[in-house]
Every structure is written in C-alpha cells, then in structure tokens.
Write a protein that binds this DNA or RNA. Structure first.
Lengths: 152, 152
DNA sequence: GATGAAAGCTTGTCCTA
DNA sequence: TAGGACAAGCTTTCATC
C-alpha cells in the first residue's frame, strides 16, 4: 500500500489520540469527514493500523518495574526456539520479546510489581523447560520514554 | 485509586480494543452503559488510562528494524544525564529509553528503516554533544511479541 | 447502579470535479 | 479516481430515580 501525505498525517494524529472523532480528525488533516473516514478504513483494512489500544499507567496499577532479561537458550535448533517462543507468547508478564543476533539469544521486557515478584517469575518461567539455559537481568532505574508512536 | 474487579476487567478489554463501544464494553463487564462509562471516565481522570493510541504496523510503513542501543554516558552528573534525557525525548526514532543500573547507563530502542538509516541516526544523534561516550548496538532478528497490555 | 431522552457522531449513498 | 453533501441509525451522555 502506498501512503501519501494525508495518510501519514492521519497516522500521526491517531498515534497521538486513537479515539479522536472522525470529524475532528478530518478537520486536522484538511478533509471533510467522509473521505477522511474512507482513508482510515483503508488503513485499517490494509493492516497499516493494526489495532487501537488503551495505554494503562504501569505505576498506577501497582506494576512498578520493567526488567530486561537477556536469555541464552539451551540450543539453537528450531524445536528449542519454537518451544521458547510459544512460552513467551503465553506469558502476560512478557510484554516484549525479540530473538537476537549476537551474544544473547533473546531479549525480554518483563513487567512485575517488585523484585520479589520478578524472582518468582524467573524461577517459575525462565527455566530449562522453556528452552532457557541462562538469564542475565538488567534493571532500569528510570523510564524516560515509552511509546509505540513511529516516526512518520 | 483502588481498583476493583470490574475496573480490572474494563482495563483488560480496553487494552485489547481501545475503541470498543461503551455499550459493548458494558455488556462484557456486566454493567449497564451509564455506570460503565462513569468508571471509564474515572479511570481516565485518575490517569490509570493515560491515553488511547492507534498501533501502526512497523513493517507496513517501511520501518523494518528495531535496534537496541546500550549507551555509556560521558559522565554521571545530573547535568550530563539531563542533557541526554532531553535529547532522547526529542528524537522520534527513539521509542523507548531507560536509565539503567549496572553496566550501561541507558538502553534505547530505536526504530529505523534499515541499517544505513541506523548508521545515519547514530552518527547524527548518539554523540558526545548529547552526553554519550560509547554505544553498543544489539540487533534483533525477529520480533516475537510487542505489546503495552499489562498483566492485570 | 439503572432508566430514558436529547444531542451529536458515524457511516452509507449519491453527486460532483 | 477522490472529495463533498446529506440522511438514517447509532452512541454517548446527562438528569432522575
């Protein structure tokens, strides 16, 4: 799908406020409501806009900590990796998971309420049965920025 | 703010679909529309729901790569750190930024279209003038999971 | 927390450039 | 091919119980 300038403006606006009314959005991008809505629907149908979500404040629901886990797997064969991937997808505490080139095999961001909670999570889930050999955990002291808004 | 069970159910639903109609949301959590909307407004006003956003598919807008940059600063004094923080907030390519305990001083996730784009970004922005001494970059080969939905 | 009514938005159809 | 105007059917939202 080829995006033009108006499409990009629509995406920028909806990345800032996903509940913006179509009337307001149309005004901001300089269209009348009907063609504006038509473009939004096209962007949704093409999967450019994959979904709309509410962003919940981590601290306000008692989940103070994000932890980064650098994972080494027990092996690099397809079976081990697939087993690991399936396990990570299943765990709601794992909010980001990447298979990495280089030193570690994977990188996780894990959301927990405190250090005790993380220890419990690690002992229960970051284990051999999920294909994991070792875990090195990096601890952030402060979150400066956290967004899904892409630079368009 | 104290959350009860219905509040948590509301948050779970809206984390999945931030544009769910209030009528549908009310049905799912077992309330009639008015008290449901009242709860949503309270959650918004308290900042538990901080915002609503459209999630854009990185690949579909030509931003194929996320890169992780482990940053060491030139110094750890408040001035250097503040200068660094201000710079990271300003850069739209930096979608996540954490100040770290341990080996590196900060961890970034940077969204770019390709390796050449990243090299350009690094040369222009991850520099001494932003308080940065060295950068070690980790490259993901695959994104398994990426969500802001917290485990509630 | 539920009900009911007013106001406003979404969204489809048709028309025009 | 793409935007604009209009109308029907919703939802939201507020006052009241």
């Amino acid at each position: 799908m080829q995006l033009d300038d108006i499409d990009r403006r629509i995406l920028r606006e909806l990345q800032q406020d996903g509940r913006m009314q179509n009337i307001e959005l149309a005004r901001r991008v300089g269209l009348s409501p009907s063609p504006c809505l038509r473009r939004v629907k096209l962007l949704e149908d093409a999967g450019v806009i994959s979904r709309y979500v509410a962003v919940v404040d981590q601290a306000k629901v008692g989940l103070q900590l994000s932890m980064f886990a650098r994972v080494s797997l027990t092996a690099q064969d397809a079976e081990t990796i697939d087993q690991f991937i399936a396990a990570m997808k299943r765990l709601p505490e794992v909010v980001e998971c990447y298979i990495m080139l280089g030193e570690s095999d994977a990188l996780l961001r894990v959301v927990v309420s405190d250090l005790a909670d993380y220890r419990r999570f690690q002992a229960a889930n970051l284990t051999r049965k999920n294909g994991i050999q070792t875990v090195k955990t990096d601890v952030p002291s402060e979150t400066i920025k956290q967004t899904f808004a892409l630079p368009l």
